[in-house]
Each structure stands twice: as structure tokens, then as C-alpha cells.
Lab assay of single mutants.
Amino acid sequence: SEEEEEEWRRAKERGEEIIILGILWKPNDEEAERRIKEALRRV
């Protein structure tokens, strides 16, 4: 969703871990980033 995407962007800017759509994303975690982008597209 729009607000999840916004939340994720803010976490990326701050360089902090975030759990979004049930996926743990850490800074520079390209695999998780790809999965999150896929999940955001499906929503």
C-alpha cells in the first residue's frame, strides 16, 4: 500500500531495519528489497 511504501522509504533513508509485509528488511538487503517490491505491487 501507499503508506507501507512510504514507511519503507523512510526506513531506507534512516538506514534502519524494518519489518514490512512480513518481510524483515535490513539496509542493503537486495533480496528482501526485491521481495518487498513484488509484494507491494501485488497489494
Rank of each mutant, 00 (worst) to 15 (best):
S1N: 13
E2W: 15
E2R: 14
E2I: 14
E2L: 15
E2D: 13
E3D: 15
E3K: 15
E3Y: 13
E3S: 14
E3G: 13
E4M: 15
E4P: 15
E4L: 15
E4F: 15
E5I: 12
E5M: 13
E5V: 10
E6Y: 12
E6W: 08
E7L: 15
E7Y: 11
E7H: 12
W8D: 04
W8Q: 02
W8R: 02
W8K: 02
R9F: 09
R9V: 10
R10I: 12
R10V: 10
R10Q: 10
R10N: 10
R10C: 12
R10P: 03
R10F: 07
A11I: 14
A11Q: 03
K12F: 13
K12C: 08
E13A: 12
E13Q: 11
E13M: 08
E13D: 10
R14I: 09
R14T: 08
R14W: 07
G15A: 04
G15T: 03
E16W: 13
E17H: 11
E17S: 12
E17Q: 11
E17I: 11
E17Y: 09
I18V: 11
I18S: 03
I18L: 04
I18C: 11
I19W: 15
I19V: 11
I19L: 12
I19F: 10
I20V: 10
I20T: 01
I20N: 01
I20R: 01
L21I: 06
L21S: 04
L21M: 13
L21W: 06
L21A: 09
G22S: 05
G22V: 10
G22I: 11
G22N: 04
I23F: 04
I23V: 07
I23D: 00
I23R: 00
I23Y: 02
L24P: 06
L24N: 04
W25C: 03
W25E: 00
W25D: 00
N28M: 09
N28T: 04
N28R: 06
D29G: 02
D29M: 02
D29I: 00
D29P: 03
E30R: 08
E30Q: 11
E31N: 06
E31L: 06
A32W: 02
A32T: 07
A32H: 00
E33G: 04
E33S: 07
E33P: 00
E33K: 02
R34F: 10
R34T: 11
R34H: 08
R34P: 00
R35W: 07
R35T: 06
R35D: 06
I36P: 00
K37V: 14
K37Y: 12
K37M: 13
K37A: 11
E38F: 02
E38Y: 00
E38R: 02
A39K: 06
A39C: 12
L40N: 00
L40Y: 02
R41C: 15
R41Y: 10
R41T: 09
R42I: 12
R42A: 14
R42D: 11
V43T: 07
V43A: 13
V43E: 13
